[in-house]
Design a binder for these strands. Sequence first.
DNA 1: CATGAATGAGGGTTCATTCAT
DNA 2: AATGAATGAACCCTCATTCAT
Lengths: 211, 211, 211, 211
Amino acid sequence: MNESTPRKRLSREESQAQTRARLIDTAQQLFVTNGYGGTSIRDIADRAGYSQGAFYSNFASKEEVLLELLRGHMEAEGAQLSKILDSEGHAPEQIFEELQTWAATLNHDADWCMMSIELQLHANRSPTFATKYQAVWDAHRGRLGGVVGKLFAALGRTPPADPEELAAAFMALTHGLALQSMGARPDPSGRLILVFLRGLIASAGLASVTR
Amino acid sequence: MNESTPRKRLSREESQAQTRARLIDTAQQLFVTNGYGGTSIRDIADRAGYSQGAFYSNFASKEEVLLELLRGHMEAEGAQLSKILDSEGHAPEQIFEELQTWAATLNHDADWCMMSIELQLHANRSPTFATKYQAVWDAHRGRLGGVVGKLFAALGRTPPADPEELAAAFMALTHGLALQSMGARPDPSGRLILVFLRGLIASAGLASVTR
Amino acid sequence: MNESTPRKRLSREESQAQTRARLIDTAQQLFVTNGYGGTSIRDIADRAGYSQGAFYSNFASKEEVLLELLRGHMEAEGAQLSKILDSEGHAPEQIFEELQTWAATLNHDADWCMMSIELQLHANRSPTFATKYQAVWDAHRGRLGGVVGKLFAALGRTPPADPEELAAAFMALTHGLALQSMGARPDPSGRLILVFLRGLIASAGLASVTR
Amino acid sequence: MNESTPRKRLSREESQAQTRARLIDTAQQLFVTNGYGGTSIRDIADRAGYSQGAFYSNFASKEEVLLELLRGHMEAEGAQLSKILDSEGHAPEQIFEELQTWAATLNHDADWCMMSIELQLHANRSPTFATKYQAVWDAHRGRLGGVVGKLFAALGRTPPADPEELAAAFMALTHGLALQSMGARPDPSGRLILVFLRGLIASAGLASVTR
DNA sequence: CATGAATGAGGGTTCATTCAT
DNA sequence: AATGAATGAACCCTCATTCAT
């Protein structure tokens, strides 16, 4: 229990965490490649080098991995966006530039978007899953809504619709574009999203509060 | 094929066509409700009132029904856009109004959107299907791009991006929103789409070339 | 459709019935040997020479075969007993003799009794199964109750308890004895059952209705 | 194992015994409720508040718990009968009354009966278990046979069959009735058993040998 | 053309058991 | 002694598809 040998410590918990991590990784790869429905637990376990039982020792069901994956992804995305908008002193142009950089990364995220679509479809069809999914989704929607609101505030303008609705619309746009451009290169998604964002801002009235 | 008995002549071919049509209809309903992967051929045949064998007498595989649906999709979309496109001399406000009407129908067209998403998802995973799907999609994209271009031209403004790209983006937005709001009432999709469209117009520079 | 070739006719329905019959037979053998819980559908299908799918083409579930089996057995048993009691003119001694003969066959029926016990256990634990089981069981209980009533009537005596209850008690005795004597030879079950029946008759008061 | 610290001395052994006892108790509850086959070791361990490993530290297999339960069964039955047997000089009415009391407890003893049935069922399929079970059963049968013999002797009558066989038959009747009336209220088992007993006595000839 | 019984592969899930900790 | 992650086999069931009728 004290530390003397530097290697092979924490075996029990460590190896458990490792198994879990490997299963999650493998699941993500396969979900992205073959879709949620096209991926069997056998596939995941086999490719990760474990038995099917190992999967069930770590997750109650296929849905659970999916939710874990989703949560992680959405939180990461939220954090990423918050970082851009939270820095108070930024000039509008700077914010735009950073958003542009972020939007560019979306191009590499098309796989994730595909999964998101499959997830939504699954949620629309499985009531039990829908509840859990809704929680994750609402949290994400709220976070993004906050980011959108902050952006308009920073620009001294009134959003042309409820910020959360706008955020959801941007998610919809992003996912829809990902669906279209699977495999198409170069993917104009990131650029288009900013075009729409600029449009929204251009059409927004000046905020009544003097900046 | 030659005519001798005056009654019930086309019976065989007709009834075959009817079988086929019923199977296609049923398949679409089920694909929308349960997804492509969640729909079995037994489901389709049973609900349509036929045997599984009848299905295979009309289609080589589940994918083939999807192709037939794609064909229907294509025709429906073509007809829809023709209405907007055919009105050559329309004033900008009129075009805008027609787009608004079109956007409003989207609310009631969620089924078609879902079907479209299923089609795209499947195309992303089946190379043989992808080719055929791409052709339909490109045609539709082109047509819709024409409408967008015409709108901006009529307004005397320069589109902030390739009209076809903008058209595709609107399709993406529409589909993405439909996915989000399956079952949610009231569905803000139509309104949001117009908010985005207005934004785009607001951010468009005045066209330099009068033409 | 008319009969000319003596062999291989009725192929479709016949072969279907054959498959069903073979599966039922095999299921019975295995249920008796390994118990209901110890018999898998794989086992049944494999041993009958079919695929698992073939099983599901003929039965909705393992429970369904069980019920079919049970029904057939109970009906046969009821018919057997009715035959003994229905012949009006028999003298009491003759009835007894025939019952003795019948009881002797019970010895060879121990396997069936075992299954019956497992069935009851299963019914006590599966509400969905319980309903269907209850119907079969009640019918059998009613039939046997009728036989018991008739026997006492023929002897001009009043049964010491509700005939249906007595019938159920005899079923219980039979099953309980079968449970005990699995494998023990010679099995005294049949003889003991008659000993109890004679006791019941001996303790029964004379019926008030003069015969 | 040697004593030095006065407190918590037997702690280890004691706690092990406690673990074992708790597992046995839990197992019995679950066997009765869900059956032997319907109870998993995980169920037992979980519900008892231990790990699966703890189970295997105490028992080599699921069957071994069953053996332990059998031992308990044996002791309980032995004690039960001792009460009846020990009263040597009792009058027939008294014995009869005691049997009546015993029969009445059976109504509330359905759990034991179910357990007994599970034991017998398992014995019928596991040769290794059967041997041990047979010993317990034979002892019990002998003891109960003694009671039956004594009853008839006290009544000055000849039993209509080997007392041990009659005893076994009563056990069979009891178990069979318990199986039928699991959950059914009111349970006529106790009453029915006495009806049968009275019948047996009624049909018994007067003992020729005074002895 | 239409039937639907039968196939064979694969789906998600559970279980008794093992073993490094 | 006790843990519980991991195993591997088995379980019930569903599916797209075939083929004799």
